Amino acid sequence: EEFVCEPPMITRHTSKMFVMEGQEVSLRCKSIGDPEPSTHWVSPDGKLIGNTSRTICYENGSLDILKASVKDSGKFTCIASNAAGEATAPVELVVNPSPHFDPKLDPDPGPSDIPTSIKSNASGGQARSDLQRVSVSDLTSSSATIRWPPQNHIPGVRMYQIQYNSSTDDILIY
């Protein structure tokens, strides 16, 4: 028997979506191919999107943004890939500022979902205010020391996820 691969083809996708700031949004991307393609999403700023406390990527090609921010506006890219190749589709997201959404009451998590601090006091230990936070110290080009408080002090936290990327390829590693 002959093994023949079929390159991915995106059959349906969200083309343009309008939401208000603070709302949940689902972007869809359906693809076919042989073997079954895997789907990835790239943000408007060119970064690969992974599962975080704010985004969920599903195996069926959907991407959920749990609380849209005006900063999320732009052209997302859906990438379906398998051994035979890849296909891409643009998905435009427009997040309109909401007059009822106050970012001061619900601050934007920024580029990381984990609050970090690289400051330490002169003795090398952590400052008192950092005892309840995740902190990063002793940074070098290939290592960092990460400290976090006991989880019983933070209701609802069951684990921490560490993500990093290399400046040579911008792929996030978890």
Results as ranks from 00 to 15, higher is better:
residue 120 S to E: 03
residue 66 L to Q: 15
residue 159 M to C: 14
residue 97 P to D: 09
residue 160 Y to K: 12
residue 61 G to P: 07
residue 89 A to N: 03
residue 104 K to I: 05
residue 57 C to D: 01
residue 109 P to M: 13
residue 9 M to H: 14
residue 140 T to I: 12
residue 96 N to F: 03
residue 151 Q to Y: 13
residue 50 G to P: 02
residue 147 R to P: 00
residue 164 Y to M: 14
residue 13 H to K: 08
residue 137 S to L: 06
residue 163 Q to E: 12
residue 27 L to F: 10
residue 146 I to F: 09
residue 109 P to Q: 11
residue 148 W to L: 08
residue 75 K to Q: 10
residue 11 T to Q: 05
residue 157 V to R: 14
residue 145 T to R: 14
residue 167 S to C: 09
residue 109 P to F: 10
residue 42 V to C: 11
residue 139 L to Y: 03
residue 74 G to N: 06
residue 167 S to M: 10
residue 150 P to Y: 07
residue 80 A to R: 00
residue 64 D to M: 06
residue 171 I to E: 06
residue 172 L to R: 12
residue 54 R to S: 03
residue 11 T to H: 01
residue 6 E to R: 09
residue 48 L to Y: 02
residue 100 H to C: 08
residue 53 S to R: 14
residue 174 Y to H: 04
residue 55 T to Y: 09
residue 18 F to G: 05
residue 42 V to D: 02
residue 47 K to R: 15
residue 49 I to T: 04
residue 125 G to P: 02
residue 17 M to S: 12
residue 59 E to F: 14
residue 93 L to N: 00
residue 19 V to E: 01
residue 92 E to W: 07
residue 63 L to H: 01
residue 80 A to Y: 00
residue 32 I to P: 01
residue 60 N to R: 10
residue 96 N to A: 12
residue 41 W to Q: 10
residue 114 I to Y: 03
residue 121 N to H: 06
residue 148 W to E: 01
residue 140 T to P: 04
residue 166 S to C: 10
residue 119 K to V: 04
residue 40 H to R: 15
residue 91 V to L: 08
residue 112 S to E: 13
residue 147 R to G: 00
residue 16 K to N: 03
residue 29 C to F: 05
residue 8 P to W: 04
residue 52 T to I: 15
residue 117 S to I: 05
residue 142 S to M: 12
residue 72 D to M: 02
residue 144 A to V: 11
